[in-house]
């Protein structure tokens, strides 16, 4: 899933300090699961802003709503009649959701209340780790399910580099060396010979905005 973190409160407050009437919009999907921008977090932030502005003697009228997904036109539609009543929108969705919201209402300023951090996994409730950089050219089959692009700090395709340190990455004793893990796993699977060949330079597919049109897309259109 997509993992986000709420921005520091002061940063959010600063962004909207001139705005008197704001709608805080949560997102019920990824950012709700990772406890950054779902209904609960919307409640907390809205109350915090209201109180802080009252203390500053700069009161704000702030309302809240959480929709199922801000990256989906179907759900955004529910906001169409509401947004015109506000000076600005605060979004607690991921970067994709925030942009789709801003695209739908180009005349209204939209501010992000979270920093979108990564595509990751759920280690525990409230503990998430990055696993994928969505590079568009997956090599996990070759690397025993450990991503060299995401998990190696130098994105090395022919590792491990000379900086590996007792199974850890040179950047931190808390960060496992991805290539050490790849080596260990391939060794267990009896597949070390598969990384004896040099992997040539990668064709990066993620250097421009990407679009995916599934084969089923046209079909659905034809049917409808």
């Amino acid at each position: 899933m997509i993992v986000a973190e709420r921005k520091p409160f002061d940063e959010i407050k600063e962004m909207i300090k001139e705005r008197k009437k704001v709608l805080n919009i949560g997102c019920g999907t990824c950012v709700a699961v990772c406890l950054a921008g779902g209904e609960k977090e919307v409640d907390v932030l809205t109350t915090e802003i209201e109180m802080a502005r009252k203390m500053d003697e700069n009161p704000i009228e702030i309302d809240k709503i959480t929709i199922e997904r801000q990256c989906d036109r179907e759900y955004l539609e529910a906001l169409d009649d509401m947004v015109k009543d506000y000076e600005a929108l605060l979004s607690m969705a991921c970067g994709a959701g925030i942009q789709f919201l801003a695209e739908r209402y180009p005349e209204i300023p939209v501010y992000p209340a979270v920093n979108t951090t990564f595509i990751g996994i759920n280690q525990n409730v409230g503990w998430y780790e990055e696993r994928c950089r969505s590079c568009s050219s997956c090599v996990l089959g070759m690397t025993a399910g450990v991503c060299p692009v995401t998990m190696c700090a130098k994105g090395v395709f022919n590792g491990p580099c000379g900086g590996t340190n007792k199974g850890k990455c040179e950047i931190s004793a808390d960060q496992p060396c991805a290539w050490y893990q790849i080596y260990e796993r391939l060794e267990k699977q009896g597949r070390l010979d598969e990384i004896l060949e040099v992997v040539p330079a990668q064709d990066w597919e993620n250097q421009k905005p990407r679009t995916v049109v599934q084969p089923g897309y046209e079909k659905v259109k034809e049917e409808s």
């Binding site: 130098k154 994105g155 090395v156 395709f157 580099c161 992997v199 040539p200 330079a201 990668q202 990066w204």
Partner: peptide
């Protein structure tokens, strides 16, 4: 930003 467009092995090849 660390570029790491290619790695040292690929640099040798290049």
């Amino acid at each position: 930003m660390g570029v790491f467009d290619i790695d040292s092995m690929q640099l040798i090849q290049m």
